[in-house]
Nucleic acid binder design. Sequence first.
DNA 1: ATATTTCATTCAGTATTGTCGAACTTAATT
DNA 2: AATTAAGTTCGACAATACTGAATGAAATAT
Lengths: 254, 254
Amino acid sequence: MNSKGRVQSIDRAIAVLNCFSLKRQELRLTEIADELDLNKSTAHGIITTLKYHGLIDQDEESQKYRLGLKLLELGGIVKESIGIREIAKPYIDEIRSKLEETVHLGTLDKKEVVYLEKAESHQSMRIVTTIGSRMPAYCTGIGKAMLAYVDEQTVLDLLPDEIERFTPNTITDKNQLIEELKKIRDQGYSLDNQEHDLGLTCVGAPIFDNLGNASYGISVSGPSIRITEDRIKEIITIVKDAADKISRELGYCE
Amino acid sequence: MNSKGRVQSIDRAIAVLNCFSLKRQELRLTEIADELDLNKSTAHGIITTLKYHGLIDQDEESQKYRLGLKLLELGGIVKESIGIREIAKPYIDEIRSKLEETVHLGTLDKKEVVYLEKAESHQSMRIVTTIGSRMPAYCTGIGKAMLAYVDEQTVLDLLPDEIERFTPNTITDKNQLIEELKKIRDQGYSLDNQEHDLGLTCVGAPIFDNLGNASYGISVSGPSIRITEDRIKEIITIVKDAADKISRELGYCE
DNA sequence: ATATTTCATTCAGTATTGTCGAACTTAATT
DNA sequence: AATTAAGTTCGACAATACTGAATGAAATAT
């Protein structure tokens, strides 16, 4: 057993799975072994095991490896087990049809936002994401809406020493971010003005559970050119209203 | 290393993940350890590792374990990597709006069908499944449509000695099944007449890739009371037509 | 055609590592 | 306060995973 009470070979197996991403869907054994600094035959044993159980598939022709269908099954179980999804879905759909912009439901996992559910805009220029995908919390609508209700010291601990800058608008100063979170708490909504992607604006609001914790968030994301100054008031009202209604369904009483 | 070239602790870790299902979303350490015949502390080490990486979450209050959000992420990558989904989605949606029944895209994994994409009927009595979930191939629309193009001996090898009966209509005789598959090949479509669930009827058709392999299938599933004799001809035409069009988009030439 | 390179895969010996059992906590129940 | 039933921690030992080298297979270069 590892010093931290973990099992080395399982750590390594998961590291193998983590080598894959939307951008790197196919990998060779050698690539994986090199990346993780594993002996080729060690990596081979791990991959053989993952493959046997369907967590990894191997292309017969190219011999390359990719994530396996078993993960689709496991992911499906996780998705179904997220109770908030069913509750929030009608509200998300309603916002989408009102605004015709992409709407997300998400939650905080450490310093990241995980998207749990979505309703995509039908417009040809629209925001597209994958359920289960992650984004840094400090520069996204849902992320900031939720961070605003996390204890300040915890927020500071979550953030790395050097906050990564994605655009000129990214808030990289910790004090400034803390101020921003205060403001969000006062207003009850968050605004991501192109802080992660240029041209992408986002309005978020927190959802509270029966214990009063801001455990989820929703947001509307669209091209900045459509989420304009004069439209934003309306969007904020709609998002806050939906978030409040979902909170109430979760048993939250203010 | 295991006799089969696999890594024991990874085998066990995956066995732990497989303990969970839609029906068993929360488990205790002891339950898992008992089920897999592992020492409690062995199971604990494995679970600690899975938890550290987010493949398993632990409820703070009840201490119970459940599958973690990381699996949602990995499942999302798998889903995005399935190219056929994007191609087939418009056709699936079209069938759904024509028939207002649930439509599936699926593939064969050994002896099981895996659902890759769906469009759900809007009617209140409708078929609901989860993407990534599995069904035995020999008693489902997509499954039979695809098995019909698998080499007969391989089909026989896939099937267990005793074919499980789910309803009075389940085909449990191997010879009869082989005959059924021949018929399906002739007709170009499959019919699942309440073979897995009483009251559920399903029309399926195979999709061929550029190499001529029946590598996917689509199906329409609905309550038998709506998928009636006089409606079925129309459904068959629609399903076959869509399957053909998708096959052509994949580069299949007859 | 043959040599060369680049992969994936297999194998046996060794030392690292995972596993076991027992002890310890914590919380709920009697 | 005692008892049960859970999760967690720890040290010792032996089973197990890992290494490194050899083998196979396929593609590319000569």
